Computed example of a mutant assay.
Amino acid sequence: MEKINLLATISVITIFISLFLSFFLVTVKTEHKLSNRLFAFFLILTAIDISINLVDLFKFSLNIRIFISTFFFLQLPAFYLYVLSVCYSDFKLKPKHLAHSIPFLTANLILLPCFYAVNLTSKIKFLEKSSSMPEVQFNHILVHVQILLYIIAAFMILRKAKKIYLENYSGASIESLKWLFQFTVALSFFFIIALFKNIFKFTEQPNVSESLKIGLFFFQLIIIFWYLYKALNNPSLFRNIDSKLKLVEDIIFEEKNSSQLAINEKEYNSALLKLKQYMIDEKPFHNPSLTIQDISAAIEIPVRDLSILINHKLEQHFYDFINTYRIESAMNILKDTAKSKVTVLEILYDVGFNSKSSFNTAFKKHTGYTPTDYRKIL
């Protein structure tokens, strides 16, 4: 009885927080409306899925209860589309995305003749033997395959988006991509535990399954609180990238296949000299939102050629290339005894950073010291 009450309490709290965060995401003023709505949809699906545990409170019919349980098939597709929308600024929902609902439709069509369309007595018999019913076993296999595929797909999207970001942007949004990666890891861990819970459910140790179930609800509540904290403190958490941008390795591959190099050695040296002179004279790195497109327009070198020049020829991501200039500028300020009263926070904003953590990470990577320690040893 105490276990049931605990589960119901956790469920109610999680549902309330999920719906509250959904309302916040839908109503908050932001440029990323689609991303917010997709995550709100994911949270609403989560709340609906959790509501199954409150069957005694809501008195759901068997058909509704089973139908709601199949909403799980929509949760990971919703999260995957959310990841796409966060990563790419020009992402839009299209008719082709309806294909993500196929597992959900398949699961319900399988249950139609053997459960939904039969009388109450047959339904009860079906539930009593559910662990041995081929339809239920098929749906369990389907959901586990879906979990695996969508988790892999989400990580592949994040990996590609991070590489494109590093090759084309210089802002602090890389921290946001790292956070989204961490959030995806947390969700992956959650679904892996859920997988083991389902395995134990069909063994001679159902108590292990119930214990894991309670643990999952605690973990789910923590994940949602974590996201709520981030959302409230960073309402414009992510800066998207353009999906039309290509990885340098793909550009080089295309150039080789067409038997045409982007720039020859003489042009490369000329472009490099022009780029370095521009960086020294104009100091564009002071702009925290600087992109490779901005520099391309300023020095009149095509984005493709400039991208190959920096990311391939110099063997540096654009992100690191710009940060090198920012760190050199910060080092000069720290060395200047006339500016000894200028704080590290003022310096990081002055040289183009807008995140203390990214500044400290970049500075230590470049010098081996934190900014504060570097100032002390001078």
Rank of each mutant, 00 (worst) to 15 (best):
D294M: 10
E267W: 05
I377N: 04
T14I: 04
H286V: 00
F155D: 07
I327K: 00
M279Y: 01
F253N: 10
L21P: 10
F285P: 10
I4F: 15
I10W: 10
T337K: 12
S170K: 00
Y227D: 02
S289I: 03
F238C: 07
H140M: 14
S35W: 00
L21E: 12
K335H: 14
N311Q: 03
L6R: 08
A153H: 06
K33R: 15
Q220C: 07
I295T: 05
I102Q: 07
F73Y: 11
A161E: 06
V185Q: 11
D250Q: 08
Q182S: 15
T361R: 06
E255V: 00
C87Y: 02
L261G: 11
T372L: 14
K356Y: 06
A47L: 11
F253M: 08
L21I: 08
S296P: 13
E255T: 04
K125M: 10
L314F: 04
E282D: 14
A194Y: 11
T372P: 04
V12A: 09
S69F: 13
R37S: 13
Q316R: 10
I193M: 13
T337H: 09
A107M: 03
F183V: 15
K341F: 05
F238S: 12
I15G: 04
I110R: 02
K376L: 13
M1V: 03
I48W: 09
A338I: 02
I152S: 02
I110T: 10
Y88M: 04
